[in-house]
Simulated assay, not measured.
Amino acid sequence: MKSVVKSPYTNEQIVAWLRGLLTIAWADGHFDPEEQELITQLTEEELALGTDINNLEQITPAELADAFTGNKNAAENFLRTAVMMAVADGVYSVEEAQIIHQFHEALGLEIEALKALEHTLYDPDKVPSLEEDIPADAEAGTSTYPHSDVLQPVKKWLDKMDVDDPRLARFICKTVPSQCPFERDIKLFGRKIVHIPPMCKLNPLYEQLVGLRFRSLSYLADECNEDVSKYI
């Protein structure tokens, strides 16, 4: 049963929010079937009820700014989810960074923490080979992770995101995995040839995403009286 908690965001802002996230998802030119299925579900059932994904277009920075005029708190929370989507897979691409920078400027926000993200930009020449295991102590958030210290400002900024809308809370619960995924060995003829580490070792902001997911679950359960068992 859906909650009747009043949203602090207008329908126009929610649609602009979704278009902004779609713009981030399309930034690198790839929109996998799995991503499209998830976005379609969120469009029809969660963020903008009854909206057809085929009728949605990428949003320009100016359009985004118009939608959030007079509500800097909503604009900043949108930017937090945009960053979350951009780094969720552990890769922050140049294309994603450019769009987020454009959104940041158009919204008229002054967020120094975003500068720290530039240190995580994807450089294919510096990415370890898949055959190389990432050290066991390179967990996200530990001092041995290359970006752990420089990313402290953006971690604190993400931790301040308000969870006060049931649609966005459901979006977060669905897009952030409940467990650290994807660790596996690929074997050929019984011998390991590749070890793919878990996402928590690839993504230095993984703990912030998990914390945001927990706050979203708590909000839906405690404030909206929703059954959150399907997200666990």
Rank of each mutant, 00 (worst) to 15 (best):
D227C: 06
K201V: 01
S7K: 00
V176D: 13
L117C: 05
S216A: 15
L151F: 14
L107Q: 02
M1G: 10
I59Q: 07
S129A: 11
K230F: 15
K187P: 04
P197L: 05
D123T: 07
I196P: 00
T10M: 03
E76G: 08
L117K: 09
R215L: 06
F171V: 12
F189R: 13
K160D: 15
C224S: 10
I193H: 07
E35G: 11
K155T: 08
Q98P: 00
F78N: 04
T175P: 05
M161P: 03
G190N: 12
M84D: 12
P204G: 05
V87E: 01
E95K: 15
Q208N: 15
K160S: 15
E37F: 04
G141P: 03
L130G: 04
D162T: 12
L151I: 10
D222Y: 04
A48T: 12
Q41E: 11
Q13S: 10
V228D: 04
Y9A: 10
P61Q: 06
W157G: 03
I59E: 01
L47M: 10
D32F: 12
H195M: 05
E105W: 00
I24Q: 05
L21Q: 13
G50H: 11
T142W: 13
P181G: 07
A25F: 07
D32E: 15
N55W: 01
Q13A: 03
S7Y: 00
L209V: 07
D133I: 01
C224H: 14
V91P: 01
L109Q: 05
L18W: 02
V83Q: 00
E45P: 01
I14Y: 02
A74V: 10
V210Y: 01
D52T: 11
